[in-house]
Protein backbone atom coordinates (compact mmCIF):
# COMPACT_ATOMS: atom_id res chain seq x y z
CA UNK A 1 0.00 0.00 0.00
CA UNK A 2 1.48 3.32 -1.00
CA UNK A 3 1.35 6.58 0.88
CA UNK A 4 -0.32 8.18 -2.08
CA UNK A 5 -3.45 6.14 -1.47
CA UNK A 6 -6.47 8.33 -0.77
CA UNK A 7 -8.73 5.37 -0.11
CA UNK A 8 -7.53 2.00 1.00
CA UNK A 9 -9.08 -1.14 2.34
CA UNK A 10 -7.33 -4.03 3.99
CA UNK A 11 -8.72 -7.47 4.65
CA UNK A 12 -12.19 -6.27 3.63
CA UNK A 13 -14.61 -9.15 4.13
CA UNK A 14 -18.37 -9.50 3.90
CA UNK A 15 -20.17 -12.68 4.76
CA UNK A 16 -23.86 -13.23 4.15
CA UNK A 17 -25.15 -16.26 6.05
CA UNK A 18 -22.57 -18.85 5.03
CA UNK A 19 -21.70 -17.13 1.78
CA UNK A 20 -18.59 -14.99 1.50
CA UNK A 21 -19.34 -12.22 -0.99
CA UNK A 22 -16.11 -10.34 -0.47
CA UNK A 23 -13.10 -12.15 0.90
CA UNK A 24 -10.08 -10.34 2.38
CA UNK A 25 -9.88 -7.72 -0.33
CA UNK A 26 -6.96 -5.32 -0.19
CA UNK A 27 -7.40 -2.24 -2.28
CA UNK A 28 -5.49 1.01 -2.57
CA UNK A 29 -6.72 3.83 -4.73
CA UNK A 30 -4.09 6.41 -5.51
CA UNK A 31 -4.94 10.05 -5.29
CA UNK A 32 -5.73 11.66 -8.63
CA UNK A 33 -6.23 8.46 -10.59
CA UNK A 34 -9.13 6.67 -12.20
CA UNK A 35 -9.21 3.22 -10.73
CA UNK A 36 -11.52 0.57 -12.18
CA UNK A 37 -12.95 -2.42 -10.44
CA UNK A 38 -13.89 -5.14 -12.90
CA UNK A 39 -14.79 -8.78 -12.81
CA UNK A 40 -17.44 -11.25 -13.94
CA UNK A 41 -21.00 -11.11 -12.60
CA UNK A 42 -21.21 -11.97 -8.94
CA UNK A 43 -17.59 -11.13 -8.33
CA UNK A 44 -18.51 -8.84 -5.45
CA UNK A 45 -17.84 -5.50 -7.10
CA UNK A 46 -21.01 -3.77 -5.98
CA UNK A 47 -20.75 -5.35 -2.54
CA UNK A 48 -17.25 -3.89 -2.32
CA UNK A 49 -18.68 -0.49 -3.19
CA UNK A 50 -21.35 -0.82 -0.56
CA UNK A 51 -18.73 -1.72 2.01
CA UNK A 52 -16.43 1.15 1.10
CA UNK A 53 -19.29 3.65 1.47
CA UNK A 54 -20.66 1.81 4.51
CA UNK A 55 -24.02 1.09 2.91
CA UNK A 56 -23.11 -2.39 4.13
CA UNK A 57 -21.29 -3.17 7.34
CA UNK A 58 -18.12 -5.20 6.68
CA UNK A 59 -17.73 -8.45 8.62
CA UNK A 60 -14.02 -7.77 8.92
CA UNK A 61 -11.41 -5.40 7.60
CA UNK A 62 -10.46 -1.77 7.78
CA UNK A 63 -11.17 1.16 5.49
CA UNK A 64 -8.95 4.21 5.48
CA UNK A 65 -9.76 7.47 3.72
CA UNK A 66 -7.19 10.27 3.67
CA UNK A 67 -5.27 8.56 6.45
CA UNK A 68 -8.32 8.35 8.68
CA UNK A 69 -10.07 5.16 9.71
CA UNK A 70 -13.63 5.43 8.40
CA UNK A 71 -14.71 1.85 9.12
CA UNK A 72 -17.03 2.98 11.91
CA UNK A 73 -18.71 5.92 10.16
CA UNK A 74 -22.28 6.10 8.84
CA UNK A 75 -22.82 6.39 5.08
CA UNK A 76 -24.03 9.99 5.43
CA UNK A 77 -20.91 10.95 7.36
CA UNK A 78 -18.70 9.33 4.75
CA UNK A 79 -20.40 11.44 2.10
CA UNK A 80 -19.71 14.49 4.24
CA UNK A 81 -16.00 13.63 4.19
CA UNK A 82 -16.02 14.11 0.43
CA UNK A 83 -16.32 10.49 -0.62
CA UNK A 84 -19.47 10.35 -2.72
CA UNK A 85 -20.93 7.39 -4.53
CA UNK A 86 -23.34 6.87 -7.38
CA UNK A 87 -25.63 3.92 -7.92
CA UNK A 88 -26.02 1.24 -10.55
CA UNK A 89 -29.61 2.17 -11.24
CA UNK A 90 -30.00 5.84 -11.99
CA UNK A 91 -30.40 7.69 -8.75
CA UNK A 92 -32.32 10.85 -9.41
CA UNK A 93 -35.24 12.29 -7.49
CA UNK A 94 -37.91 11.58 -10.11
CA UNK A 95 -40.62 14.00 -8.99
CA UNK A 96 -38.30 16.92 -8.42
CA UNK A 97 -37.25 19.12 -11.30
CA UNK A 98 -33.74 18.90 -12.73
CA UNK A 99 -32.90 22.16 -11.00
CA UNK A 100 -34.25 20.92 -7.66
CA UNK A 101 -32.29 17.68 -8.02
CA UNK A 102 -29.00 19.54 -8.22
CA UNK A 103 -30.06 22.01 -5.56
CA UNK A 104 -30.57 19.21 -3.03
CA UNK A 105 -26.83 18.61 -3.21
CA UNK A 106 -25.94 22.30 -2.98
CA UNK A 107 -28.35 22.71 -0.09
CA UNK A 108 -26.07 20.48 1.96
CA UNK A 109 -23.83 23.49 2.37
CA UNK A 110 -26.37 25.13 4.66
CA UNK A 111 -25.61 22.30 7.05
CA UNK A 112 -28.66 20.40 8.14
CA UNK A 113 -31.81 21.92 6.73
CA UNK A 114 -34.09 21.36 9.67
CA UNK A 115 -35.57 24.87 9.33
CA UNK A 116 -39.12 23.88 8.58
CA UNK A 117 -40.47 27.34 9.39
CA UNK A 118 -38.59 29.10 6.60
CA UNK A 119 -39.80 29.51 3.03
CA UNK A 120 -38.04 27.44 0.43
CA UNK A 121 -37.36 30.66 -1.44
CA UNK A 122 -34.13 30.86 0.60
CA UNK A 123 -32.92 28.06 -1.66
CA UNK A 124 -32.98 30.34 -4.71
CA UNK A 125 -29.52 31.53 -3.79
CA UNK A 126 -28.26 28.20 -5.12
CA UNK A 127 -30.12 28.44 -8.43
CA UNK A 128 -27.33 30.03 -10.45
CA UNK A 129 -24.77 27.55 -9.28
CA UNK A 130 -27.13 24.66 -9.89
CA UNK A 131 -27.73 25.94 -13.42
CA UNK A 132 -23.98 26.04 -14.02
CA UNK A 133 -23.69 22.37 -13.04
CA UNK A 134 -26.67 21.53 -15.23
CA UNK A 135 -25.10 23.34 -18.17
CA UNK A 136 -21.91 21.36 -17.59
CA UNK A 137 -23.67 18.14 -18.41
CA UNK A 138 -25.73 19.65 -21.21
CA UNK A 139 -29.15 19.63 -19.59
CA UNK A 140 -29.89 23.36 -19.54
CA UNK A 141 -33.04 23.13 -21.66
CA UNK A 142 -34.49 20.59 -19.22
CA UNK A 143 -33.88 22.60 -16.03
CA UNK A 144 -37.56 22.90 -15.14
CA UNK A 145 -38.51 19.43 -16.31
CA UNK A 146 -39.29 16.69 -13.82
CA UNK A 147 -36.36 14.28 -13.64
CA UNK A 148 -38.73 11.37 -14.33
CA UNK A 149 -39.35 12.76 -17.83
CA UNK A 150 -35.70 12.55 -18.86
CA UNK A 151 -34.26 9.82 -21.04
CA UNK A 152 -32.03 7.26 -19.37
CA UNK A 153 -28.81 8.82 -20.58
CA UNK A 154 -29.90 12.24 -19.40
CA UNK A 155 -30.86 10.88 -15.99
CA UNK A 156 -27.33 9.59 -15.60
CA UNK A 157 -25.98 12.94 -16.67
CA UNK A 158 -28.20 14.61 -14.08
CA UNK A 159 -26.91 12.22 -11.48
CA UNK A 160 -23.36 13.21 -12.27
CA UNK A 161 -24.27 16.89 -12.11
CA UNK A 162 -25.84 16.31 -8.69
CA UNK A 163 -22.80 14.43 -7.46
CA UNK A 164 -20.43 17.10 -8.76
CA UNK A 165 -22.45 19.80 -7.02
CA UNK A 166 -21.13 18.36 -3.75
CA UNK A 167 -17.64 18.98 -5.12
CA UNK A 168 -16.40 15.66 -3.78
CA UNK A 169 -12.73 14.85 -3.57
CA UNK A 170 -13.37 11.28 -4.53
CA UNK A 171 -16.16 9.65 -6.54
CA UNK A 172 -17.28 6.08 -6.52
CA UNK A 173 -19.18 5.39 -9.72
CA UNK A 174 -21.13 2.14 -9.84
CA UNK A 175 -21.46 1.14 -13.51
CA UNK A 176 -21.88 4.63 -14.89
CA UNK A 177 -22.42 3.25 -18.41
CA UNK A 178 -24.86 0.49 -17.57
CA UNK A 179 -27.73 0.33 -20.05
CA UNK A 180 -26.54 3.29 -22.06
CA UNK A 181 -26.68 3.86 -25.80
CA UNK A 182 -23.32 4.20 -27.55
CA UNK A 183 -23.50 7.98 -28.05
CA UNK A 184 -24.26 8.39 -24.37
CA UNK A 185 -21.32 6.19 -23.44
CA UNK A 186 -18.99 8.47 -25.35
CA UNK A 187 -20.47 11.59 -23.84
CA UNK A 188 -20.38 10.32 -20.25
CA UNK A 189 -16.91 8.89 -20.85
CA UNK A 190 -15.66 12.31 -21.88
CA UNK A 191 -17.42 13.82 -18.90
CA UNK A 192 -15.79 11.39 -16.48
CA UNK A 193 -12.40 12.14 -17.99
CA UNK A 194 -13.03 15.83 -17.57
CA UNK A 195 -14.18 15.64 -13.97
CA UNK A 196 -11.27 13.39 -13.04
CA UNK A 197 -9.01 16.44 -13.16
CA UNK A 198 -7.94 16.98 -9.54
CA UNK A 199 -10.29 14.25 -8.33
CA UNK A 200 -9.96 10.57 -7.64
CA UNK A 201 -12.40 8.13 -9.16
CA UNK A 202 -13.08 4.52 -8.36
CA UNK A 203 -15.54 2.91 -10.72
CA UNK A 204 -17.16 -0.41 -11.34
CA UNK A 205 -17.68 -0.91 -15.05
CA UNK A 206 -18.54 -3.76 -17.39
CA UNK A 207 -17.77 -1.98 -20.61
CA UNK A 208 -14.13 -3.01 -21.05
CA UNK A 209 -13.36 -0.56 -23.82
CA UNK A 210 -14.41 2.24 -21.48
CA UNK A 211 -12.27 0.75 -18.74
CA UNK A 212 -9.29 0.46 -21.09
CA UNK A 213 -9.78 4.01 -22.25
CA UNK A 214 -10.29 5.71 -18.91
CA UNK A 215 -8.57 3.91 -16.12
CA UNK A 216 -5.04 4.28 -14.84
CA UNK A 217 -5.25 1.17 -12.76
CA UNK A 218 -7.49 -1.86 -12.70
CA UNK A 219 -8.35 -4.33 -9.98
CA UNK A 220 -9.94 -7.56 -11.13
CA UNK A 221 -12.28 -9.29 -8.71
CA UNK A 222 -13.57 -12.84 -9.03
CA UNK A 223 -15.60 -14.75 -6.47
CA UNK A 224 -15.03 -12.05 -3.93
CA UNK A 225 -11.26 -12.06 -4.16
CA UNK A 226 -8.67 -9.94 -5.90
CA UNK A 227 -7.50 -11.83 -8.96
CA UNK A 228 -5.12 -9.35 -10.48
CA UNK A 229 -4.15 -5.72 -10.36
CA UNK A 230 -2.28 -3.41 -12.69
CA UNK A 231 -2.79 -1.32 -15.79
CA UNK A 232 -4.97 -2.54 -18.63
CA UNK A 233 -2.11 -4.08 -20.64
CA UNK A 234 -0.90 -6.13 -17.68
CA UNK A 235 -4.30 -7.21 -16.47
CA UNK A 236 -5.67 -8.18 -19.88
CA UNK A 237 -2.74 -10.55 -20.46
CA UNK A 238 -3.04 -12.23 -17.09
CA UNK A 239 -3.99 -15.87 -17.66
CA UNK A 240 -6.12 -15.96 -14.50
CA UNK A 241 -8.13 -12.98 -15.72
CA UNK A 242 -8.58 -14.51 -19.16
CA UNK A 243 -9.81 -17.69 -17.56
CA UNK A 244 -12.26 -15.84 -15.34
CA UNK A 245 -13.70 -14.09 -18.37
CA UNK A 246 -13.89 -17.10 -20.68
CA UNK A 247 -17.40 -17.59 -21.90
CA UNK A 248 -18.16 -13.97 -21.29
CA UNK A 249 -16.48 -13.28 -24.64
CA UNK A 250 -14.04 -10.66 -23.41
CA UNK A 251 -10.25 -10.50 -23.10
Amino acid sequence: MTDAAILSASGLTKEFKGFVAVNKVDLAVERGTIHALIGPNGAGKTTCFNLLTKFLQPTAGKITYKGQDITGLTPADIARQGLVRSFQISAVFPNLTVLENVRIALQRRRGDSYDFWRSESVLHEYDDEARAHIQDVGLTEFSNERAAELSYGRKRALEIATTLALNPEMLLLDEPMAGMAQEDVERISALIKRISQNRTILMVEHNLSVVADLSDRITVLARGEVLAEGDYATVSKDPKVIEAYIGAGHA
Binding site: T53, F55, T74, P75, A76, D77, A79, R80, V84, R85, S86, F87, A91, V92, F93, P94, N95, L96, I104, A105, R108, D112, T162, L166
Partner: peptide, 14 residues
Protein backbone atom coordinates in the same frame (compact mmCIF):
# COMPACT_ATOMS: atom_id res chain seq x y z
CA UNK B 1 -39.22 10.15 -0.13
CA UNK B 2 -38.06 9.98 -3.74
CA UNK B 3 -34.80 8.16 -3.19
CA UNK B 4 -33.55 7.37 0.27
CA UNK B 5 -30.16 5.78 -0.57
CA UNK B 6 -29.35 8.69 -2.84
CA UNK B 7 -30.20 11.18 -0.09
CA UNK B 8 -27.84 9.30 2.21
CA UNK B 9 -25.12 9.33 -0.39
CA UNK B 10 -25.48 13.11 -0.61
CA UNK B 11 -24.71 13.25 3.10
CA UNK B 12 -28.16 13.62 4.65
CA UNK B 13 -28.81 11.85 7.95
CA UNK B 14 -32.19 10.60 6.79
Amino acid sequence: RENEPRSISLGYHV
